[in-house]
């Protein structure tokens, strides 16, 4: 090959490379612009509405001042119940998938169904729980809200825990079994511990996901203008309050919606960072 032909080809590749890089950079910037815009609007409008009353007072009637205490508490309680429901079931399912059905046909099918559930529209899950836990009882309730959130959380935990367990080195599994320990004992005492960073990270990210879910709560927990610590009754929660207040014509409610949005964003962001730090800390050793 002649030298000038080689240099022409190299130049062509350089041009193509530069063009590709520019396109990729532009696409990244395009995506980031929206994210920064959303965060900035939330932070600016939310910060303007931020004050102590937010965490000490109940949601107010139109025109008067108040806070979001009942909504924060309701969200907290329902998310907690959802984790209590979904975490044990999800972990057990993941143990079965990763340790006892890793390559079996049934395991593959269930893993696929779980992935479908993972991407199921949350409004469908809301409707499903409405049929199951609201209509028979005759009224909305915190329990129903927790159930809906648990159904959303469950496939997240199954997927992440399954993957975390599958990432545990095979040698560790063999070492446990080679001591003559039964597989369940090796799983419970050795493998889950070795996978704990991935499992906890998955739960934290799952909590971040359900903390902002609105649609399933509209059908199940609905809302409550007053303080309610009884999950048998409708409970206030941050996403639905944001939804209702943002749609209202009142400026005080708008401000509270922004403050709630900011609090939710900070919570989810904090949880994601916590999950990452935890994962890095536990896997660094």
């Amino acid at each position: 090959m002649r030298w000038n032909e080689i240099s022409r080809r190299v130049r062509g590749r350089r041009v193509a490379g530069a063009a590709g890089l520019s396109l990729a950079t532009a696409a990244t910037l395009f995506g980031l612009v929206w994210l920064v815009w959303i965060l900035w609007t939330t932070a600016a409008d939310g910060a303007a509405a931020l004050n102590v009353r937010l965490f000490t007072q109940m949601t107010p009637p139109p025109g008067s001042e108040g806070g979001l205490l009942n909504a924060f508490f309701g969200s907290f309680l329902m998310v907690l119940m959802a984790v209590a429901l979904a975490a044990p079931v999800g972990l057990l399912a993941a143990v079965w998938l990763a340790e006892f059905a890793r390559t079996s046909r049934l395991g593959v099918v269930i893993r696929m169904i779980n992935d479908v559930l993972l991407s199921a529209p949350s409004i469908v899950i809301g409707l499903f729980v409405y049929q199951l836990a609201v209509r028979p009882v005759g009224h909305f309730s915190g329990y129903a809200g927790a159930c809906a959130l648990a159904v959303i959380l469950l496939p997240v935990i199954v997927r992440t825990s399954d993957e975390a367990l599958q990432l545990v080195p095979q040698t560790l599994r063999e070492a446990g079994l080679a001591l003559g320990l039964p597989h369940w004992k090796v799983t419970a005492n050795v493998l889950i511990r070795a996978a704990s960073a991935g499992i906890v990270t998955g739960v934290l990210l799952g909590v971040a996901r359900i903390a902002g879910e609105t649609a399933p709560l509209l059908f199940t927990s609905l809302n409550n203008q007053y303080w309610s610590a009884n999950p048998k009754t409708p409970m206030a929660n941050v996403p639905v309050v944001i939804f209702q207040y943002a749609m209202s014509p009142y400026d005080t409610w708008h401000a509270l919606a922004w403050a709630g949005a900011l609090a939710l964003t900070v919570f989810v962001l904090g949880l994601s960072i916590l999950a990452r730090l935890f994962f890095r800390h536990r896997t660094a050793r």
Partner: peptide, 19 residues
């Protein structure tokens, strides 16, 4: 279980448990 209690095994890579 009985077999592995009688015949132990040490692997190429050290496999300490996270304990």
């Amino acid at each position: 279980g009985r077999l592995r209690a009688q015949i132990g095994m040490v692997f190429q890579k050290a496999t300490p448990f996270h304990l």
